[in-house]
Design a protein around this nucleic acid. Structure first.
Length: 439
RNA sequence: CGGAGUGUGGCUCAGUCUGGUAGAGCACCGCGUUCGGGACGCGGGGGUCGCAGGUUCAAAUCCUGCCACUCCGACCA
């Protein structure tokens, strides 16, 4: 992409409405524009980041055996009357009427829709397990939207739903999601801690929230340091095998957010030098809910014994649009955003310091083409602007690499590369620079 | 939903108390000089002062009502 033809409206000052750093930086980087309380338009740069994150989430879901679908944003109230949630959900549900006076709603989640789909087609235990997910916009009419896309009313969520014959099988589905989530966050450059969550009326221990560490996070986390250091399991695991040991290893060490924290247990279970307290942001929530929807909605399958029984369900959510803000909270400095490579809107920026100078243009174009050919999705800064302005805005939007082409370097056959995250610079011939960036 | 606050060119803000017909910086347009960390000069364009009523010779400013947005608290990807 040539910046001179792109749309990247950066701001030198943050709008006064933005209170937290991710919101300020998203506005300054020209990623989003607010249309109303908790409602945002995604501008080109923000949209690219959102798509990148979405793709990482998608790949990890697919790897773990989930199947992608796309459910509607508008849902029929009758379905929610079946599950009993239409009246329970309250004012957070945006209720709509169509021209025939039929009650609709803008989906805040999709258990009812997916259960309706499931029950229409799947009748036998032989077709289980199944896990369907979609990445779709949700709307929850929050009492108090805030902090930009961190807590919007409209937000992009990946929601997955598992269907199993019994609780033991459901636990296996749960475990797959548990590990897939850790891999997802790790790929996005985040430290994520699974903490036990309030399982609600179903009980049991099958509910976890995933909290990423960021100094500016809203909630406080208490955890065993070994859990923090353990890292993600990685993609090369046997997804059909016994995942219980890996999950147990990560769910037995103490970890809790403020509302579930038990100071006495923390001190009893965790030695003093292993007690970690930090701030974090919730970016995922998984839980097992058994027959909560399958029973009232009659999502039954025939078991090996020939009898029909409600399936055991679980659901698994990732706040995709929230992750955009979460990553920024976890990764920024005074100059702006520092994207991890997997989420970066562009892999590298080729900075032409003197557009119009034929020799500089030639090298910049050559670098741009080479990076394009190698799949780095580069941004060519060919704006007619001063070097300082270019560096400042590219630092602000957080592109991981800058490949700087200026008259002095070109005269000596060299370019400069700069790594955004560390500020580290190297002066190299173009070929060597390209090798470093594409390594 | 309770409490607090803010609405003035795209952004940051001054002007409101004490009424006299709107201003600065950034951004934008033109010309010129600049050019390795958000340049400078000269010239220029852009604002129903959130909306609706009211008071007044006169309202951004005073009064009434409404709307929007932000923050703090109880709830959530």
């Amino acid at each position: 992409m040539r910046l001179s033809r792109y749309f990247m409206p950066t701001l030198r000052e943050a709008p006064a409405d933005a209170q937290i750093v991710s919101h300020q930086l998203m506005l300054r980087a020209g990623m989003i524009r607010q249309e109303g309380a908790g409602i945002y338009a995604w501008l080109p740069l923000g949209h690219r980041v959102l798509k990148k994150i979405e793709q990482v989430v998608r790949e990890e879901m697919d790897r773990a055996g989930a199947i992608e679908v796309l459910m509607p944003t508008l849902q029929l109230a009758d379905l929610w009357r079946e599950s009993g949630r239409y009246d329970d959900y309250g004012d957070e549900m945006l209720r709509i009427k169509d021209r025939n006076d039929r009650d609709l709603l803008y989906g805040p989640t999709a258990e009812e829709v997916i259960t309706d789909i499931f029950r229409a087609y799947i009748k036998s235990y032989k077709d289980l397990p199944k896990n369907f997910y979609n990445i779709q916009w949700k709307f929850r009419d929050e009492r108090r939207p805030r902090f930009g896309v961190m807590r919007g009313r409209e937000f992009l969520m990946k929601d997955a739903y598992s269907f199993d014959i019994d609780e033991a099988a459901a636990r296996r589905s749960y475990n797959r999601m548990f590990l897939a989530y850790l891999n997802t966050y790790a790929r996005l450059g985040l430290k994520a801690i699974p903490v036990k969550a309030d399982p609600g009326p179903i009980g049991g221990d099958l509910s976890h929230e995933f909290i990423i560490l960021a100094d500016t996070g809203e909630s406080e986390v208490f955890a065993h340091q070994d859990l923090v250091d353990m890292g993600a399991p990685g993609p090369d695991i046997d997804w059909d095998g016994d995942l219980e040991p890996m999950v147990a290893q990560r769910s037995q060490l103490y970890a809790a957010s403020d509302e579930m924290h038990d100071a006495a247990r923390f001190e009893a279970e965790v030695p003093p030098d292993k007690r970690m307290t930090a701030r974090g942001i919730e970016v995922g929530h998984i839980f097992y809910f058994g027959e909560k929807y399958s029973k009232p909605m009659k999502a039954l399958v025939t078991g090996p014994d020939g009898k029909d029984a409600p399936i055991h369900g679980g659901s698994y959510g990732v706040g995709v649009s929230r992750l955009v803000a979460g990553i920024i909270e976890a990764s920024h400095d005074e100059a702006g955003i520092i994207w991890p490579d997997a989420a970066a809107p562009f892999g590298a920026a080729v900075v032409n310091l003197r557009p119009g100078a034929a020799d500089v243009d030639a090298v910049a174009e050559q670098a741009y083409k080479a990076l394009t050919d190698r799949g780095k999705e580069p941004l060519l800064d060919d704006r007619d602007d001063r070097p300082g302005a270019k560096f400042a805005s590219l630092d602000l939007v957080g592109i991981p690499w800058q490949l700087i082409v200026g008259p002095k370097g070109v005269a000596g056959g060299m370019v400069e590369i700069k790594r955004r995250a560390t500020g580290e610079r190297q002066t190299l011939p173009l070929d060597a620079a390209l090798k470093v960036i594409t390594a």
